[in-house]
Design a protein around this nucleic acid. Sequence first.
DNA 1: CAGATGCCCTGGGCGC
DNA 2: TGCGCCCAGGGCATCT
Length: 274
Amino acid sequence: MRRGLALEVAGRDVTSVAVTGARTVRRQPAVALVERLRGARLGEAGRIGKFLLVPLDDGAETLVIHLRMSGQLLLTAPGWPLAKHTHAVLGLSDGRELRFVDPRTFGELFVAAAPPGGPGAPPGRPAALAHLGPDPLSPGWSAAVLGRGLIGRTARLKLLLMDQRFVAGIGNIYSDEALFEARLRFDRPAGSLSGDEIGRLHRAVRKTLRDAVTHRGSSLRDAQYVDLFGAPGDYQNRHRVYGREGEPCTRCGGPVRRISLGGRSTFLCETCQP
DNA sequence: CAGATGCCCTGGGCGC
DNA sequence: TGCGCCCAGGGCATCT
């Protein structure tokens, strides 16, 4: 989604703004966001974890977008019929519209001040995102950094991977996929990993996220996740455990298991992830 | 303090 | 066909 925004909306001006959803803009008065966006020039989108950051004008402020469970950003011609649960529409100077659609209304938009990022660099992170840990695809997230972070942690590995304060951007699908790739059980105490296991985990997280982006994300049965043009991703067809309960493990042929953890599903192969 | 639980919502799938 | 239940890519407040 970040790549799509960078390709399609960077350099456009916002010519009109309509916010109709009561919950979609909730960190600030909707009128403040509308007035700040109207007439703004959109910069090249950045990303920290699951948050999208679209710099405004000189980059001193940024539009922050989180899709949560069911949010979509769609780029359409103005005449297109408005999908149900469309909560915000930005008119763009190229005549198209950027629409935020979100049935469950967990997603949100807000405008925040962004510290300057230096010449040529993207703006820094807004204060509202200060709690986020490093993005696992950023250069700073090395195996050594991961290993230091794991020391003394008693949490189960999967829950720590999904803790956005620890590392930002891994959710329920990609934690399961990365743990399978790393051949690690989800309920290992995070601090119990050996050096070799830390290396495997680090490699697996980065490979899983990179591959998922290459394949344009995971669109599950309800096809909630789609790109700017409504096209679903492809990575769901490459999942090795997530959503594959009872199907054969791609590595050993044994059945993929589903276990409930913290009220959500965890998928794993108990043979390959001892 | 870390960890567990429940809630914010709508919609789809399934059993009866 | 319809009802009630369970489940779903996340994050946060509130308990212990």
